[in-house]
């Protein structure tokens, strides 16, 4: 084939361009630290990366859900523990007076103590997490219990949150199941603790009213089953916390797996690219050098 100087220079330009393009791609990968910078770099991997990115965001969101739910359950657990303590204190008072007392001062003091304890119980049942009353079900903008009557003003809805894809975790414990002994899913017991308190207060009597010994022992028995009811609730809360812990660990494990896949696809191997770059640089320098040498050759210099 006949070769002209123009052909050589066209070829040189074409090949220099190819070399530059390869160098540019390597430079881009090295400086960004990413293998895939646009979807067209690797469409299949980009799809994978996108899906992983999406899953990671979902996992982060669920971790945040789980953290908030764990705090909620810790609040719930603390309050229920407090209620247990109050009920046990009331049982102790009932125990010291199980045969009644003839001393009006003692009766009055026991009466006052029990009224205080009931107030504490109501306060605990009206615990807020943020601005939500945690024992009020879905009607949680107003306090579920009041000191004036024993009614439950909340509602029995079981709120749930998503902790894994399409898997929900019940969050709240409603006050009716806890203190009124009504409601289901699950039921903790059938004791109306508030009513029992009132019965006990009435049975203890005060400085003018004498004690009713039978009623005291009945109320003490009821308080015992009330305490059991609260214990069952506590273990339900603990079971939920354990599940959240497990989900959190599972999420973390999934997150690490996904991150390692994404890293494998996306992050560049600097050592490999470095070797490629120095090879490419050598090739490019060689083609620059030959281009410079060959294009200078002309018969003109020898005529």
């Amino acid at each position: 084939m006949r070769v002209t100087a123009n052909m050589s220079s066209d070829n040189a330009i074409y090949n220099l361009q190819q070399g530059r393009a390869k160098l540019d791609k390597l430079q881009n990968q090295i400086s960004s630290g990413q293998n895939v910078n646009t979807p067209s770099d690797d469409p299949i991997s980009s799809r994978l990366l996108l899906e992983i990115g999406d899953k990671l965001r979902a996992i982060d969101q669920r971790s945040s859900n789980i953290n908030k739910a764990t705090s909620w359950l810790q609040f719930t657990s603390t309050s229920v523990d407090g209620m247990s303590d109050v009920v046990n204190l009331a049982r102790k008072v009932a125990g010291t007076l199980n045969t009644g007392s003839d001393d009006p001062a003692i009766r009055q003091s026991a009466h006052d103590q029990l009224v205080d304890l009931k107030k504490q119980l109501i306060d605990m049942a009206n615990t807020q997490f943020g601005d939500q009353y945690i024992f009020a079900g879905a009607d949680n903008a107003t306090p579920p219990f009041s000191i004036t009557n024993n009614n439950y003003d909340g509602d029995g809805t079981q709120l749930s949150i998503e902790v894994a894809q399409n898997s929900v975790q019940p969050l709240n414990v409603t006050g009716d199941r806890l203190l009124k002994g009504i409601g289901a899913n699950p039921t903790y017991g059938t004791t109306d603790i508030l009513e029992t308190f009132d019965n006990l207060i009435a049975a203890v009597g005060d400085n003018t009213t004498p004690s009713d010994v039978d009623a005291i022992s009945q109320a003490a028995l009821d308080l015992q089953s009330g305490a059991r009811q609260l214990n069952i609730a506590t273990s339900d809360i603990l079971a939920r916390t354990t599940r959240l812990d497990n989900m959190s660990k599972l999420n973390e494990k999934n997150r690490n797996t996904l991150l390692s896949i994404s890293t494998r696809v996306q992050e560049v191997d600097y050592a490999k690219l470095g070797v490629e770059l120095s090879n490419q640089k050598l090739a490019f320098e060689a083609s620059l050098s030959t281009t410079a040498k060959v294009t200078q050759l002309s018969l003109l210099d020898y005529l």
Binding site: S32, Q34, P39, S46, G53, R57
Partner: peptide, 26 residues
């Protein structure tokens, strides 16, 4: 979406915001 946030990220964040709302609906 590989190097910038676009519709995909906006979509995840939108549903993430709903997730947050499930924890405190009011």
């Amino acid at each position: 979406e590989v190097s910038n946030d676009g519709i995909g990220t906006a979509l995840s964040n939108f549903f993430g915001a709903w997730q947050d709302l499930t924890l405190n609906p009011g």
